[in-house]
Amino acid sequence: MKINIYYGGRGIIDDPTLFVINKMQEILEELRVNVTRYNLYESKGAIATLPQTLKEVDGIILATTVEWYGIGGYMQQFLDACWLFGDKEQIARIYMCPVVMSTTYGEREGKLNLSTAWEILGGLPCSGICGYIENTVMLEMNEQYIRIIEKKAENMYRSISQKMACFPASNQAVKQKIAVPNSDNLTPQETERLSQYVSDDGYVQRQKEDIQELTSLFRNMLSEEGEDNEEEYLGTFRRHFKPQAGFEADYSINIEEKKKKLILSVKGPKLECYYGSLEQPDVDMHMGRSTIEDIVNGRMTFQRAFMSGAMKTRGDFRTMRTLDQIFLFEEKKQ
């Protein structure tokens, strides 16, 4: 029989959980069980690979200490790794005994969280140990507490050796009905390799650098493609210009996605049309590309664009309305 112990505490000397798992390991080894212990705080960067250690084990002990609130970050990371990278078929055959000792409030909730998480993963939870220990010395000197620990270890050994069945849990049924299947459909070997990559900080850093390089490359390509076309719309306005005798006005059109403004300077029969800037235009307009497209294709007038809110205008309204008289755009027939 093979049992792994995963300790999610900080490893401090007076941690009561350490005494409990040491005593359980001692009892299990007396029963000729092969026990391997993993201190998660010593394997911070390799927690994602620890689900690989679940291979060929018959049972595990998940042990942690509640020092403030919850089961702690290391244990949560390990459970997350089991969900992401663990072999669910293998986990379904593994018994788990939760051990949660508390120096504050929350040991029962912590034990329940571990049992619930293991059930959701598909595993088989055993009756565990939880308790509030204010002084570790009191735990070590109390023969009754030690006897409870020994009995729990023996019960775990008995459950595994006899392959005792567990009643189905509702959270497993709910998971089967509502859980979204993983579209990757990775094999256990591929999942194992993925967990190795995730835990390799050098590999992750190289991937980030490659992504940044590709992002910069595509950004430059888009920037080159998105450069302003200095001739766009100029020919259209020149072709549809119908001068009005004695009329003079300067128009500035700010088109979204254009870096420069479209300037229309009307001096009687002459029209100057270019992209640039004008200090004090008679009418300053702001519109989107779709709006200017509708106008030059005859689907909308400047006045209607203003009235509908598609175009914002500052300046003389009558001068703005004259645009529809000096630029006659006709809608193209299909």
Rank of each mutant, 00 (worst) to 15 (best):
G246C: 04
Q25S: 09
L31P: 02
N182F: 06
L214I: 06
I47H: 03
V296G: 03
G8C: 03
M156Q: 00
E227R: 15
Q244C: 05
T313P: 00
L79F: 03
V198L: 07
T49A: 03
L139E: 01
A245F: 06
E89T: 13
V180Q: 11
G202Y: 01
K258Y: 15
E119A: 05
Q172R: 15
G202H: 02
E107S: 08
R314K: 07
T322P: 11
E154H: 05
D15L: 02
D282E: 05
F78V: 06
K312V: 13
G110C: 06
I133Y: 00
I91C: 10
I94W: 02
I253K: 08
D201P: 15
I292W: 00
L222V: 06
R206E: 14
S127I: 15
W68R: 09
V204E: 10
F327E: 13
I295P: 03
L18C: 06
G131A: 06
L262H: 03
E154C: 06
T136A: 12
G276H: 13
S161H: 05
A245M: 12
G268E: 15
M221T: 06
T291M: 03
E134F: 11
V33W: 05
G268F: 12
V100Y: 04
V283L: 02
R219H: 08
V57S: 10
M221S: 07
Q334S: 11
E272D: 13
T104F: 11
F241T: 10
Y105W: 11
A63C: 09
H240I: 06
S161I: 02
K267A: 12
I60R: 02
K259A: 11
I211E: 10
G45C: 06
E134I: 11
G276S: 13
R10S: 10
G276N: 14
I148V: 14
Q303E: 12
L271G: 10
E192P: 00
N142C: 14
I60W: 00
N229R: 03
M164Q: 07
I160W: 04
F306K: 14
F218I: 15
K44A: 13
D250C: 14
E227T: 15
R289P: 03
V296K: 00
W68P: 07
K208I: 14
M287L: 12
E42D: 08
I178V: 08
I12T: 08
P16E: 00
N182E: 15
P16K: 00
M287V: 04
N142Y: 04
D316W: 02
F317D: 13
P243R: 02
R238F: 08
T322R: 14
G235D: 09
M285P: 02
N22W: 01
I71T: 04
E256R: 04
S308H: 08
D200C: 00
C82T: 09
V283P: 01
I292S: 01
